[in-house]
Nucleic acid binder design. Sequence first.
DNA 1: ATAAGGCCCTGACCGC
DNA 2: TGCGGTCAGGGCCTTA
Length: 277
Amino acid sequence: MPELPEVETYVRELAPQLAGSRVAAAQVFWPRTIAAPDADTFAACVAGLRFTSFGRRGKFMLLGMSDDYTLIVHLRMTGKLLMLPGNATPGAHTHVLLVLDNGRSLHYMDPRKFGRIWLTRRPETVLAKLGPEPLSDDFTPVSLAHALARRRAAVKALLLDQAVVAGVGNIYADEALHRAGIHPAQPGGDLDATACQELHAAIVAVLTEGIARQGSSLGGSGLQNYLRPGGAPGGFQEEHQVFRRTGLPCPRCATPIARMVIAQRSTHFCPSCQPAR
DNA sequence: ATAAGGCCCTGACCGC
DNA sequence: TGCGGTCAGGGCCTTA
């Protein structure tokens, strides 16, 4: 699933390919993919715009366009953006197609259809509820402690809350909690200052390493739900300590990794390294 | 305000 | 081989 490192990889790899190109034509095949404006308005409005800047906020891709527009893309579970030849036929899972003036086309593909795209002059309205950006100075041990204070929900559930910290999803939440030695079901408000400091450092570390490895690609026994814009996989799955490693030995202590469900999400942890309190 | 559960979707997988 | 049932899961919405 695309989380912050996967989205960051997308932005970095798309930028040089899209910079300066103009949308020659747009087609929407699944209207619900377009969150705003309505699909017909979107297709008419995006045609003719030029890509001017490239950024990211949490798991949202921010593609700046001419005329002060921002194309915002959220891949959710299985969304992909692929750069293909301009005459490439849209596949069964291509829901939005942008034909560019540089001989190529940008295909938004998404088997689960959970992803959403906005075209707006007010991107801040889409991003309003996001918490601090975890790799910026806004995210500190103190800000994390403040966000967790007095919360009774499991710390894992709180890490998935984009208002607590933006960009962490199921993979990096499990990996960060393992690195910090914190049980995922522990109530967020029970973490003391030391635990918050360790969790903060662990979140920064796993996201930074995830970006360095160009994200996590999970396939084989599941959907291949993240591929880079050129179609290549990332490499961080090779570094996973706990995620989808139920029953396998913890790399640190060899105890079998356990699985539980928190906030309706599969949660993987080491019962020895992450003891319940 | 917070927490918990349902919903959207469909490919992959399992058991018969 | 074919078929029905189950699972996964981010963000938004509703409910308590």
